[in-house]
């Protein structure tokens, strides 16, 4: 029993979210296994972005939000008043749909910002090493190592997105949330990010949100299909894509709704 508990890094129980009068997420139950790419796919407006934002509690920046249910990170409840949201966000990194490096900071400072505030390092040397480590993991180091102190806005779209990944990795998170990370990138930039995900699951659990079933099939270990705020079906990727149980899921993975 204990073993099973430990193999899941994140567990979501009976999660409901209302924004204003809208019931955006309905009775969500999910168990996310460690060191996998877990994809939440569904058409736009199905609530998948809201689900991600509920996990790291960024949702609290929005107004008129009501939440019920429980979220456990390694068996610790993270969505109650006793846990500070910033402590949750430190352990659960996030990459957004539109690459959003902080344009007024340098490449180096973008990556260093999180570790610096969260006091993850003791010296400048340690910080340098951490920044290098994170940029290497994001496949960006070779492209930027000679211009670390240039502003982040000089990078291309794909590079900016990898910088955002490095920024999240630098905090050594347990989980990396990725909200449609390739939807604003060209095909070359997208495929680089996809390769990166498969590599990164060795060090972090990735929860990916996408509305492209084909991207989901390329990178995922597990998939949950969400429609109108409800989890329709969840399981290993292979099963979902080859033998979907629900007709809605089938329609989606074959590209007939989306």
């Amino acid at each position: 029993m204990k073993n099973i508990e430990n193999s899941y890094v994140l567990r979501i129980k009976d999660l409901n979210v209302w924004i204003g009068d809208r019931h955006v997420l309905k009775n969500i139950n999910l168990d996310i296994p460690r060191n996998t790419v877990f994809t939440i796919m569904g058409p736009s407006g199905s609530g998948k972005s809201t689900l991600l934002r509920t996990i790291n509690r960024i949702i609290e920046l929005y107004q008129n939000v009501k939440i019920s249910g429980e979220i456990y990170l390694e068996n610790i409840k993270i969505n109650d008043q006793n846990t500070r949201p910033e402590n949750v966000r430190r352990l659960i990194g996030m990459v957004f749909q539109i690459p959003n490096p902080l344009p007024h900071l340098s490449i180096y400072d973008n990556v260093a910002l999180g570790p610096k505030y969260n006091k993850l390092v003791k010296s400048k040397k340690e910080l340098d090493e951490l920044v290098k480590w994170a940029l290497e993991r994001a496949y960006l180091w070779d492209e930027v190592k000679d211009r670390l102190h240039e502003p982040a806005r000089v990078l291309s779209g794909g590079q900016q997105q990898r910088l955002c990944i490095a920024r999240a990795l630098a905090m050594k998170p347990k989980i990396l949330l990725m909200d449609e990370p390739t939807s604003n990138l060209d095909p070359v930039g997208s495929s680089k990010i996809e390769e990166l995900m498969i590599e990164l699951k060795k060090i972090v659990t990735i929860i990916l949100v996408t509305h492209y079933p084909f991207q989901a099939s390329r990178v995922s270990d597990y998939v949950a299909f969400i429609y109108d705020g409800q989890i329709i079906e969840t399981g290993p990727a292979e099963e979902i894509f080859t033998r979907p149980k629900n007709p809605l899921t089938e329609k989606f993975v074959t590209g007939r709704i989306g």
Binding site: R90, N100, L102
Partner: peptide, 11 residues
Amino acid sequence: DIKEALYSLGL
């Protein structure tokens, strides 16, 4: 998205 980025870093 700048605000979100800052909050997502656990600040």
